[in-house]
Amino acid sequence: MPRVEKEDQESMAMKLLSVQNSPVECEFYVCKWDKQVWGRLNVPKHSFILWMAIQDKLKTKVRLFKFKVIDEEVCGLCNIHKENVEHLFFHCSFSHVCLQVLKTWLGWNVRAEDLQSLIRWIERSKQSQFKKKVLAAALVYHLWRARNDEVLKISSSSQEVIIRRTKEAVKLRVSCAMPRKVSSEDKNWFAEL
Results as ranks from 00 to 15, higher is better:
K153M: 07
P179A: 02
S157L: 15
R3Q: 11
C75W: 07
V62F: 04
G76Q: 03
N84P: 01
V24S: 13
N84W: 01
S93T: 10
K167L: 11
Q55A: 14
C78L: 07
S183I: 00
V170W: 11
S128K: 02
K126E: 12
Q100N: 14
S184Y: 06
L106G: 05
A137F: 06
M52F: 01
W144D: 05
C176S: 14
V182Q: 02
V182H: 05
E83L: 09
V85W: 01
V62A: 09
E10L: 15
K59L: 13
W189L: 10
Q36W: 00
K68S: 09
V85R: 10
W51A: 08
K6W: 14
R111W: 06
E25Q: 13
L64N: 01
S157H: 12
R120D: 15
W51M: 03
L115E: 03
E192T: 07
E160Q: 14
Q20Y: 12
L58N: 03
F90T: 01
L118G: 03
H91A: 07
S128F: 04
Q55K: 13
E27W: 06
I163D: 10
R3H: 13
R40N: 07
L17W: 11
T60E: 03
W33M: 00
D56N: 15
L118Y: 11
L106M: 15
E86V: 08
S125K: 06
L41T: 06
S157I: 00
K82S: 13
K32H: 08
H91M: 05
A136G: 03
E72L: 02
F130I: 04
I119R: 00
K132V: 00
M14Y: 06
G107K: 07
S158D: 02
N79W: 08
A112Y: 05
A191S: 14
K57F: 01
M12H: 07
E27N: 09
S95T: 15
T104F: 09
V170I: 15
V62H: 04
L50P: 05
S47V: 01
H142F: 13
R145T: 05
E86H: 12
N21D: 07
H91S: 08
A138I: 04
E150T: 13
K82P: 05
E123V: 08
V110W: 15
E192N: 12
D71P: 00
C92G: 07
R120V: 00
V43I: 15
A13N: 08
I163Y: 13
V97S: 09
P44I: 00
L64T: 01
Q20S: 11
A169I: 04
V101H: 10
K126C: 12
I80H: 11
P179V: 02
V4N: 05
H81K: 12
N109C: 06
H87S: 09
E10K: 14
F48T: 02
C78D: 12
G107V: 02
S155Q: 12
C98Q: 04
S117W: 04
L135M: 14
L106P: 03
K126H: 11
L193Q: 14
W189E: 09
D71K: 08
K171N: 08
A53G: 07
A177F: 11
E72N: 15
I49D: 03
Q159C: 11
M52Y: 01
H96R: 12
H96Y: 13
T104S: 14
C176A: 13
